[in-house]
Amino acid sequence: MSQVIYKLDNIYRRILTNINIEIHKGDRVMLFGPSGSGKSTLLHLFNRLDDPEQGSIFYNGKNINEQDITTLRKNVGLVLQQPYLFPETVKDNLMYGPKLFNDWNPDEARTLLEYVNLPESYLDKPVDELSGGEKQRVSLARTLANKPEILLLDEPTSALDDQNIEQIEQDLINLIQHNDLTVIMVTHNLEQAKRLGNRGIYLENGKIVEEGLLPDMLDRPETEALKNFTTNH
């Protein structure tokens, strides 16, 4: 059995009710369900962007409330649906996190852009000259600059066109393969969940209704709720 990297024990927060999850090292967990089901709220608990009202969360066996929050967020990187980049250049964004820990190596800048399929010439490019897809890829590279163990993704492709979605997905597949990342991702796209995930968690009204291996749980759902959801999506 692989290492349990996260354990959520009896979590309550806003809509979330009695959430119990174990995430193992190397998992690629897809969170899906209707709008308002609590997917993003759940995702944001993993790096303390939000905190539970009841219950405990353990990261590598230690309660995350007892861990330094800056170090936690370095190890558990978050990429949002709408990328927020700092002003100035792509390079300024890439070096921001590592410089907080005196861990910036300029030689790694090119590798970070290679991960997200951008040329080295983009390092000196002002971020306000980037397209939407390029901004999302720089946001992903900036998160990777911190050398995270876990990557949290909150619908990172939902605002992109089909071509950029395909590129971001390929970037993610390459990153997962080369960086031994554990991934927890919110998506509304069930085909994307099949392409990127190996585990699925279906939420409805703040509760886990069904979880299992992908793509099996989407091809052969066990609950009526998930059957209805897959039929309508």
Rank of each mutant, 00 (worst) to 15 (best):
W104H: 12
D161F: 14
E129Q: 06
L113V: 10
D124M: 07
N10G: 15
G212V: 09
T111C: 01
L85A: 10
Q3Y: 02
E224P: 07
V76Y: 12
Q167D: 00
E155L: 11
N65A: 09
L196V: 08
E22K: 13
E53L: 15
D103G: 08
N63V: 08
L226M: 04
T187V: 12
G133I: 03
S139L: 04
R13C: 13
V29P: 11
N105E: 09
V138Y: 08
L181V: 04
Q167L: 14
L153W: 14
P215K: 02
I19R: 11
L196G: 05
N75R: 04
N93Y: 14
D50R: 09
P126T: 00
I208L: 06
H188P: 01
E120T: 09
E210R: 03
E53Q: 15
P156G: 13
L226V: 00
V209F: 10
S2G: 13
P34M: 12
L218A: 07
N18G: 02
E120R: 01
S121P: 02
D162F: 15
Y12C: 07
L144W: 12
E211Y: 14
N164A: 05
N228W: 10
S56T: 01
G33K: 04
S37Q: 01
L196T: 08
I201E: 05
A145T: 07
I184T: 14
G26P: 02
I69T: 14
D216M: 06
G212E: 05
Y122N: 01
L49A: 10
I176V: 14
L140T: 04
L49K: 02
G97P: 08
E149Y: 02
P148N: 08
P34Y: 13
Y122K: 02
Q192I: 14
R195V: 04
R137P: 08
E169W: 03
V186D: 02
T231V: 11
F229H: 10
E204S: 00
E204I: 12
L72K: 12
Q177R: 15
K227A: 13
E155Q: 03
R220P: 00
G38N: 09
K99I: 06
L196Q: 07
E66T: 11
N102Y: 12
T143Y: 03
V116D: 06
A109C: 05
E134F: 08
I176G: 00
P148Y: 11
I21S: 01
V79D: 01
P221D: 04
T231Y: 15
G200M: 12
P156C: 10
E149C: 09
V186W: 11
A159C: 03
N205H: 10
G38L: 08
E108S: 02
T230D: 01
N117R: 07
D216R: 09
L112H: 14
N174K: 14
N10P: 13
L43G: 05
N75F: 01
T111G: 04
I173E: 14
V138N: 10
I150M: 07
N164M: 15
S139V: 02
E210N: 00
K207F: 03
K74H: 07
S121Q: 06
T70W: 04
I150L: 05
L8R: 04
L42N: 12
L123M: 13
E129A: 07
A145G: 05
P148S: 02
G33H: 09
S40C: 10
V209A: 07
Q136V: 07
D219R: 00
K125Y: 09
T231R: 13
D162L: 10
V116T: 00
K135A: 08
F86L: 15
P106A: 08
L160T: 03
D51C: 06
